[in-house]
Design a protein around this nucleic acid. Structure first.
Lengths: 163, 163
DNA sequence: TTTGGTGCAAAGAGTTTGCATTTAC
DNA sequence: GTAAATGCAAACTCTTTGCACCAAA
């Protein structure tokens, strides 16, 4: 398991390899993403960093995140309202999102590779696409919200209360 | 296998059950979505229908699609640029998206249920979330783009050309 | 007849861009 | 020293909202 410092160094190395400059803003944004796996929106990230970087601009946050996504350091998680949240992508994993509170949790399944291989194979058989990657995203209710909503943890399904 | 007419009728029935009015706009938008599995954006849908509904408003398209998503008739497919595309959700399926041309293709895998059950179980074990649904999305290169890009169909991986 | 829906226009949110200044290399 | 990145503001795109008119039930 790589330490946060090692992950950060590896990411900075990646910047150098792509000949983009290692600015304080980029380092601080990276450091935040490595340390906090809270899948921040641009907004969240901006406010989390405004103490450390008082004249940080929103534009810089947008530009930096777009750069990181292009370099594959970070992945963008689109939600069904058209917004994006970001995640440092050190090790392959997928996500589960709480339908009640919106929290995003990383899932590192032991046989994730087997499931994905199966999925990719089937898809290729059927569509003849050349499969390059997959995104798995689950939705559910996180443990805290289960308690808050008084949901029986043994039940297998759940339907959102009518709005 | 349900015919398009049956799917359309079922969807209209759903509108009635939820006591929302069956307007010409809603019927025509539904008809389009049932007939074309091209995963249109709001823009695409609007232009496809402007002949049939000359004073159709964008706002109506937005409102209607949001309604359909809330009713579960249609699903929203967010892309990593923060945009949304829509898909009539008659039968469970997942999607593969061409990285070159952006085309979205439906995948109806035979044992999709088994793969999903496995995924859900693992996720629950690890996170203790109550899993309610899952979204599987693959990325790849569609057959046409493989030809255009002269990609050997036997190869197993592909990396996007540097921009 | 009575809500609820539509169309229009305006407002709002989120994101990108142009440009002068600053800074990493 | 030079090219690239930042910060600011303005521009732009996408989506929602308020309201008068219309139409489905």
């Amino acid at each position: 398991m790589a330490t946060q410092q090692q992950e950060l160094n590896a990411a900075i190395q990646l910047l150098r390899e792509h000949q983009v400059r290692v600015t304080p803003q980029r380092q601080i944004i990276l450091k935040y993403l490595v340390a906090h796996h809270n899948h921040p929106s641009v907004e969240t990230l901006f406010h989390a960093l405004e103490d450390e970087l008082p004249n940080l601009s929103m534009a810089t946050v947008y530009n930096t995140l777009n750069l990181f996504v292009d370099l594959g350091i970070v992945i963008a998680l689109p939600n069904d309202k058209g917004g994006l949240r970001y995640d440092f992508y050190g090790r392959p994993h997928y996500h589960i999102i709480c339908e009640n509170c919106g929290k995003i949790t990383d899932v590192f399944a032991p046989n994730i590779a087997a499931v994905e291989a199966n999925l990719n194979h089937q898809t290729r058989e059927q569509t003849h696409y050349l499969v390059t990657s997959n995104h798995v995203e689950l939705h559910g209710i996180c443990p805290e919200c289960q308690r808050k909503l008084h949901i029986d943890p043994e039940q297998q399904g759940w339907t959102q209360p009518t709005k």
